[in-house]
Design a protein around this nucleic acid. Structure first.
Lengths: 221, 221
DNA sequence: ATAGAATACGAACGATCGTACTATTAAATC
DNA sequence: GATTTAATAGTACGATCGTTCGTATTCTAT
């Protein structure tokens, strides 16, 4: 049954949904999921309010779909490239480089999408916060696993949870400060902080150099 | 001229302004400065919309006044108590303890006021962002000075700017994570991270113990 | 051919937003 | 006591919010 793929109506709808979400993630990253307004979104897309709402149902549904769309972008930009890097310390370091590049490149206008909307919804119970919290748990767990896998290269690593927390905090700090002050130098501070931390844990500093493994296939070297 | 102090009209106005701002900072810490609505604020205060707006002028003025009010609270809660602690490493450590307590105690419902509203306004140019950026610069500089003063107690400290950045990032990370996941354990992770970092710089671990100097006058010891 | 589903639009809804204008009350100044 | 100033309320304005309803269009399935 290729029916689902061939249905012209659904294909058209999915294309519209994707185009809508492409704008929605950008808008939400700067205005927040609350500030993401259906009217503004429709105007920017050259569509009608009712058309947009018809595609998603309610505003809450749109917000959740927007989060999911941002997650896809994040996975393609950070997670998957990191998984192509050699297990262990190289991958742990690649995660940091990839994340800092993702933030600095403003893949989302407002910096890291999840940092922007988590700050907005951190103290507001509801399905939005629950979803964001679950994504954050996944993200922390991903780094914890990478840290644990890097343990052979980090002889003095005692607590992967602690290291994951610190790493995320440092990266988020660079994201926030660079946005607020319009300066890229915080990314260097973050890189230094993490590098020094890993070296203190016994890492071979040769592994922790720029540039990170490129997104392309394993290089010739 | 004690005229300003004695004017009953202005006294009444200032009292109203203060009561309004007391609610405004709480609301803004959870809803953001954009989500801070004059109507809702008035309703919660049992006042009228026009009465609230008359006290502040425009919404932008209200937002700026709210930031200033939050700053006063922050200074009284963190900065001033820290300045009562002995210069050097004890003060640097006290700043961290006081900030983490300030965040954990939910002096503002939404955690640290400035983290909440900075995330909201980090990518939106304007006077609000400028004010928040200036406050953040002050805050970072305050910690840098404390770190520099602690240099005799931190023989391996090479870069106070780097240390200030990391310290703030770790504390902010605890604030964000504790809000999102409704757990206090991130504050312990932050304390551990900063303590270990300071010890790595050569700090005497005896200085880095709980509890921090109480807010009260210099203790008998 | 026709019934049904999915996409899209336009118009209108009640609610709330920030703001402006007017009026009333209380306090200070002359 | 009259005038000025500040604080507050009341009302109304235009804009925008999310949502609903009716309808036209496009494609699939019978």
């Amino acid at each position: 049954m290729t029916a689902t793929e061939l249905d012209g109506r659904r294909r058209r709808g999915n294309a519209s949904r994707q185009a809508t979400l492409d704008r929605a993630v950008q808008l939400a990253s700067t205005e927040g999921l609350e500030g993401l307004s259906i009217g503004q979104l429709a105007t920017e897309l050259g569509a009608s309010k009712s058309g947009v709402i018809a595609l998603f149902g309610t505003k809450l549904d749109l917000q959740l779909a927007t989060i999911e769309a941002a997650r896809s972008v994040f996975i393609a930009t950070v997670i998957e490239p990191a998984l192509r890097v050699q297990r262990g310390l190289p991958r742990l370091w690649a995660i940091c480089e990839l994340w800092l590049d993702y933030s600095e490149a403003r893949v989302f206008q407002g910096g890291c999408f999840f940092r922007a909307v988590s700050a907005e919804n951190g103290s507001k119970p509801g399905p939005v916060r629950d979803t964001l919290a679950a994504i954050d748990v996944d993200w922390l767990a991903f780094i914890e696993r990478a840290a644990t896998s890097a343990q052979p290269d980090l002889p003095r690593l005692a607590d992967a949870v602690q290291l994951a927390f610190e790493t995320v905090a440092i990266m988020d700090g660079a994201n926030t400060a660079s946005l607020l002050h319009g300066s890229a130098r915080y990314y260097e501070l973050a890189r230094s902080a993490i590098r020094d931390r890993l070296i203190a844990l016994g890492a071979d500093s040769a592994v922790l150099s720029r540039p990170a493994a490129p997104t392309a296939a394993p290089a010739t070297g």
